[in-house]
Amino acid sequence: MANIKSAKKRILVNRTKAERNKSIRSAVKTAIKKVEVAVVNKDKETAVNALGAATAIINKAASKGVYHKNNAARKVSRLAKAVNSLN
């Protein structure tokens, strides 16, 4: 265990940030699953709506620094490609 005050604070801050990041990552995964389920069910309208919501959540996570911008762009691109494959 840390003895120095600043090290103790770092532990607390890192724990708080880790919990926040975990929550955001979970929200992203849930949004992605909603899009994927709609694609599997071939429900174009639901997939498009879910894609919009997922894109917003993923971009917000990238702006917060939870995901790298390229990682977020890749996730959005894959979802968009899946939704666009529905015709």
Rank of each mutant, 00 (worst) to 15 (best):
Glu36Asn: 13
Glu36Thr: 10
Val37Phe: 05
Val37Ser: 04
Ala38Asp: 05
Ala38Thr: 05
Ala38Trp: 00
Ala38Glu: 08
Val40Phe: 03
Val40Cys: 01
Asn41Ser: 12
Asn41Gly: 03
Asn41Pro: 03
Asn41Lys: 13
Asn41Trp: 02
Asn41Leu: 08
Lys42Asp: 13
Lys42Tyr: 04
Lys42Arg: 15
Asp43Ile: 01
Asp43Trp: 02
Asp43Met: 02
Asp43Phe: 01
Asp43Lys: 13
Lys44Pro: 02
Glu45Phe: 00
Glu45Ile: 10
Glu45Leu: 09
Glu45Met: 07
Thr46Val: 14
Thr46Asp: 13
Thr46Phe: 09
Thr46His: 10
Thr46Ala: 15
Ala47Pro: 08
Ala47Thr: 10
Ala47His: 05
Ala47Tyr: 02
Ala47Gly: 07
Val48Asn: 08
Val48Glu: 14
Val48Phe: 00
Val48Thr: 12
Val48Trp: 00
Asn49Val: 07
Asn49Thr: 14
Asn49His: 09
Asn49Asp: 14
Asn49Glu: 14
Asn49Arg: 11
Asn49Met: 11
Ala50Met: 09
Ala50Val: 07
Ala50Cys: 05
Leu51His: 07
Gly52His: 10
Gly52Ile: 06
Gly52Cys: 08
Ala53Val: 15
Ala53Lys: 13
Ala53Asn: 15
Ala53Cys: 05
Ala53Pro: 07
Ala53Tyr: 14
Ala54Leu: 05
Ala54Glu: 03
Ala54Tyr: 08
Thr55Asn: 12
Thr55Leu: 02
Thr55Met: 08
Thr55Arg: 15
Ala56Met: 12
Ala56Tyr: 15
Ala56Trp: 15
Ala56Ser: 14
Ala56Gly: 11
Ala56Lys: 15
Ala56His: 15
Ala56Glu: 15
Ile57Trp: 06
Ile57Phe: 09
Ile58Leu: 09
Ile58Glu: 00
Ile58His: 05
Ile58Val: 12
Ile58Asn: 06
Ile58Ser: 01
Asn59His: 12
Asn59Trp: 09
Asn59Tyr: 11
Asn59Leu: 11
Asn59Pro: 02
Asn59Met: 12
Asn59Asp: 13
Asn59Glu: 13
Asn59Gln: 11
Lys60Gly: 03
Lys60Pro: 00
Lys60His: 12
Lys60Val: 03
Ala61Ser: 06
Ala62Met: 11
Ala62Cys: 14
Ala62Gly: 07
Ala62Arg: 02
Ala62Trp: 14
Ser63Trp: 04
Ser63Lys: 10
Ser63Arg: 09
Ser63Cys: 06
Ser63Val: 10
Lys64Asn: 04
Lys64Tyr: 14
Gly65Cys: 11
Gly65Asn: 06
Gly65His: 07
Gly65Val: 14
Gly65Arg: 06
Val66Asp: 00
Val66Thr: 00
Val66Lys: 00
Val66Gln: 01
Tyr67Cys: 00
Tyr67Val: 00
Tyr67Ser: 00
Tyr67His: 00
His68Ile: 08
His68Arg: 11
His68Lys: 13
Lys69Pro: 01
Lys69Ile: 10
Lys69Tyr: 04
Lys69Ala: 02
Lys69His: 09
Lys69Met: 05
Asn70Leu: 10
Asn70Glu: 09
Asn70Ala: 09
Asn71Lys: 12
Asn71Ser: 12
Asn71Gly: 08
Asn71Leu: 11
Asn71Arg: 13
Ala72Ser: 06
Ala72Trp: 10
Ala72Pro: 02
Ala72His: 01
Ala73Gly: 02
Ala73Val: 03
Ala73Pro: 01
